[in-house]
């Protein structure tokens, strides 16, 4: 076998165009984050049963109402028009409630879109989401001209965080403090732990909805559930810490009287702290910028 050629060489490619395009390794595509594929969404048995009940209830109700309205018209025009008015008003209210739920859910999806745009560094998409959000917020509306001028994602984010989002965070904290005081008071005077939990849950849901409203979201029932699902993991981590602290306190205090006193005070303080934390977590979930 002969030796390899000695010395380096440059071989120009004559068959190639004079100005060759730059190499493209498809890097942008190669490094795209790998997201686990979404499991195919299938309706659970419970979901199908519930949908069936709704379809039957609304469908049969609508058919029944239509038949009844037609029968009323045979009795007389006045009865017919009155019945039609009642039916349209009733179904109209149901439809407007459904629309409000849908809008609430869509507004939460818009927050997701804005966050995704910030995360991937897509300035134009993030700007357009920020402008849409600012348009619906009294606190952020004056910022719109400045938002149109920004030249980078970092600037856009800084502008939002320094201005309206900082103000909203302060207000969310105030709401959290108010809820904390109420939770502490209720825990102190309530006669049973079961009632504690009920009051805490009700106040927590109300707090999440209040914070969401601050951020321009109007979550209905479905929207509130979606927000609660986001906050539940953080809240669970807080609860785990609380349990550890509580257990440590009880282990250290062997005196029965001290144990009783510390237990009651600790329970109230824990409830209050959870409310404060819940307000912060809910505010994080509603912000249009991703967490740092």
């Amino acid at each position: 076998m002969s030796d390899p050629p000695k010395g380096p060489r440059v071989i120009l490619e004559d068959d190639q165009p004079q100005i060759a395009p730059r190499l493209d390794f498809g890097w942008d595509q190669a490094v795209v984050p790998v997201v686990p594929p979404n499991p195919p969404s299938r309706w659970s048995g419970f979901g199908r049963a519930a949908a069936g009940v709704v379809v039957l209830g609304l469908g049969l109700g609508a058919l029944e109402a239509a038949n009844f309205t037609a029968a009323q018209f045979t009795r007389g025009a006045v009865q017919g028009w009155l019945t039609l008015g009642v039916v349209v008003a009733g179904f109209g209210l149901i439809a407007s409630a459904g629309w409000a739920e849908l809008r609430g859910l869509l507004s939460i999806r818009a927050v997701d879109r804005a966050r995704a745009a910030f995360a991937r560094g897509d300035l134009e998409a993030a700007r357009s989401e920020a402008l849409r959000w600012a348009g619906g917020m009294a606190e952020a509306a004056p910022l719109q001209p400045a938002l149109r001028q920004v030249g980078s994602i970092a600037e856009l984010r800084a502008l939002l965080e320094a201005g309206p989002l900082a103000g909203l965070e302060t207000q969310a904290n105030a709401l959290g403090r108010a809820a904390a005081v109420q939770a502490f008071a209720v825990t102190a005077i309530s006669p049973s732990p079961g009632l504690d939990a009920l009051v805490f849950a009700w106040r927590g849901v109300r707090l999440v909805r209040q914070v969401a409203a601050l951020h321009g979201l109007r979550p209905g029932l479905a929207g509130t559930v979606a927000l609660l699902r986001r906050t539940v993991f953080d809240a669970a981590a807080v609860a785990a810490t609380d349990i550890a602290v509580d257990a440590a306190a009880r282990a250290l205090l062997s005196n029965k009287l001290l144990e009783q006193f510390a237990g009651e005070a600790a329970a109230g303080a824990l409830a209050a702290r959870r409310m404060l934390r819940l307000a912060r977590v809910a505010a994080e979930a509603c912000r249009i910028t991703p967490p740092r």
Partner: peptide, 19 residues
């Protein structure tokens, strides 16, 4: 060898860098 686009004139070239 390796193939790249030369900075000086934008032409495609193959380089044998030696052993």
């Amino acid at each position: 060898a390796v193939r790249g686009v030369l900075l000086r004139d934008g032409r495609s070239a193959r380089i044998y860098p030696g052993e």
